[in-house]
Design a protein around this nucleic acid. Structure first.
Lengths: 214, 214
DNA sequence: TTAATATCGATACAATAATACCGATATTGA
DNA sequence: TCAATATCGGTATTATTGTATCGATATTAA
């Protein structure tokens, strides 16, 4: 029954379409065309159509897509209606930022609790979320069905934390530490490398500046 | 003289190679092969060789690359030795996290100052960096040659901040707000969309879980 | 000295992703 | 009613990215 798996690139664009649609004024038209979306987001219109085709089938020639339906289909496809539980390890600045970002909850990610080496036995609260000492990690993993582990510890601690999460049954790791992690095959690993992004940004910028000098 | 522009994908991997090489133990061999790197990072060895070929030319059959040279070539290529000035707007949790991440300085990004609506006239300091009120943004942009603007404000404020940065002469925008920004053609825009990453992670995870049920 | 082998770099091939093109169709307005 | 047109969705083409293969070469060890 394998439905054709969606490409990573398309998947990354879907939340962007969703944001765009949701940000449209309340009183805008009921229908919207791929052409309009593409213009708004500076994308190719065929790409938009193809992307949307993989989550919805409501497009009508000359009319476009029903905005409401499209939003619904996107949210549904992206799993925004049923939340996945996650825990976060490393309540430093970045960890705190992720903990207090309310957008995740709206997008199907429920960060149940955080863990940090530096907090006391009873734990503390950040933005209404419990931050517990590392010693309690295994207990929490055993008690709740946590599927996703978010790693925001310094790089030297990341692999060890990762191993503990995996041992506790986590099925996916979202790694913000700037280091490579090793996980068993059945565990999904997603690296969020700002350092990689920076490399792209600064290289492209310097290319552009060089070009101007010529 | 157009030297073949490097691909985005390769560019993203270069800092990863660099991290890997730098994390090797001091007493490890002087030379390292693409094969070894590929194994360590779970990449294809041909890909590693091709990537490295675009920044270095020191590979020797049966020997590999001289670690020191390779590190040097990577750093040089990535521009880690001459810093680019940046300012950051939005000193919330995420902004603070980026401000206090020392890795950027080592990677050629010099965050000169930050700006935030909520700070007083004289500003405050975070991790040794000045955070000034928004009113002083234009003055700073005029005074220093700031090339990169980092946006970590809430989405509703992002476009306006972006426009002020562009008007002030910034040449590249690194956008962490989960919204689409419009910039003039000559300005580089790089979106850091955690929401996109989350979409990939959670979709792949649910695919995997579904598969197990069959 | 010579055979075996690890590794490089180049070229060829395959997979993925983006874009162009085109016929079909719903709407608008003559 | 019918022509003009915007838009869809499918197919074809092109571009980008990743992987396999192979000859050349440096090192090791017989």
């Amino acid at each position: 029954m394998e439905k054709q798996a969606i490409s990573n690139q398309t998947l990354k664009r879907l939340p962007i379409y969703l944001n765009y649609l949701k940000a449209l004024p309340q009183d805008s038209a009921v229908n919207i065309s791929a052409t309009t979306i593409a213009e708004g987001l500076r994308l190719n219109e065929v790409q938009v159509r193809k992307d949307l085709a993989s989550v919805s089938s409501g497009g009508r020639p000359r009319v476009g897509y029903a905005k409401g339906h499209l939003i619904h289909d996107l949210e549904r496809f992206l799993g925004y209606d049923d939340a996945t539980s996650a825990i976060l390890v490393g309540a430093g600045n970045l960890g705190k930022a992720l903990l207090s970002y309310h957008g995740f909850a709206q997008r199907g990610l429920n960060i149940v609790a955080a863990f940090d080496e530096r907090v006391c036995e009873e734990g503390i609260e950040i933005d209404g979320k419990q931050v517990l000492p590392m010693a309690k990690l295994e207990e929490m993993l055993a008690r709740m069905k946590i599927l996703i582990g978010i790693i925001t510890v310094p790089d030297y601690a990341a692999q060890q934390v990762c191993d503990r999460l995996v041992a506790g049954g986590v099925r996916a790791i979202w790694n913000f530490a700037p280091t490579h992690l090793t996980v068993p095959e059945k565990v999904l690993l997603q690296n969020e490398s700002m350092v990689s992004s920076l490399a792209v940004l600064s290289k492209r910028l310097s290319e552009q500046l060089d070009q101007e000098e010529e």
